[in-house]
Design a protein around this nucleic acid. Structure first.
Length: 153
DNA sequence: GCCAACGTTGGC
DNA sequence: GCCAACGTTGGC
């Protein structure tokens, strides 16, 4: 059963156009250092669909669609002392952090802004993105919610 | 195990 | 740049 997700990224760092420009149009989603978000990534299966959400920018919102192209594996950045995401408590046989690989599907014809989404709040009860103080960078999206949101394109 | 202090996220 | 909300850390 296919599942649906929302993943946040800062377009100044890595946006939908960057994903589209990658060789193979894929990118390992490294650097997630929150247990809840990590657990969601572990649940992801190949072929699951992803809302690619731009945050901390002029107009936050969903910019494109991606899909899970590789299921959870050890995030290599946790082993690299040079990396911002280095975790000295992580070992090769007991990696603490995982990532998935995501693949570009398409850019939306227009950005579905957070404001647009909020206007559908009545139809989106329980959507993590709209929950108070939600800061998770990876969250599940109900199929019904997915459809409501995508119709806003 | 409690909880204050601190750090981070992210919309505005 | 502000600030609310939340997670993590570390002293006790």
């Amino acid at each position: 059963m296919k599942k649906y997700w929302l993943m946040k990224t800062e377009p100044d760092e890595f946006g939908i156009d960057d994903l589209a420009a990658r060789p193979g149009r894929t990118e390992p989603w490294t650097g997630v250092r929150n247990y809840q978000a990590r657990n969601f990534m572990r649940e992801m299966r190949k072929g699951d669909l992803v809302f690619f959400y731009h945050s901390s920018c002029t107009v936050p919102g969903i910019a494109g669609l991606a899909e899970v192209s590789r299921e959870a594996f050890a995030d290599p950045t946790q082993f690299n002392p040079e990396s911002d995401y280095y975790d000295p408590k992580s070992t090769a046989d007991k990696p603490r952090w995982h990532c998935v690989e995501v693949k570009f599907k398409r850019k939306l014809k227009r950005l579905i802004s957070l404001t647009d989404i909020k206007q559908q709040a009545g139809k989106l009860k329980g959507l993590a993105l709209l929950q108070r103080g939600s800061r998770l960078s990876v969250t599940p999206v109900d199929k019904a919610h997915w459809d409501v949101i995508l119709k806003l394109e």
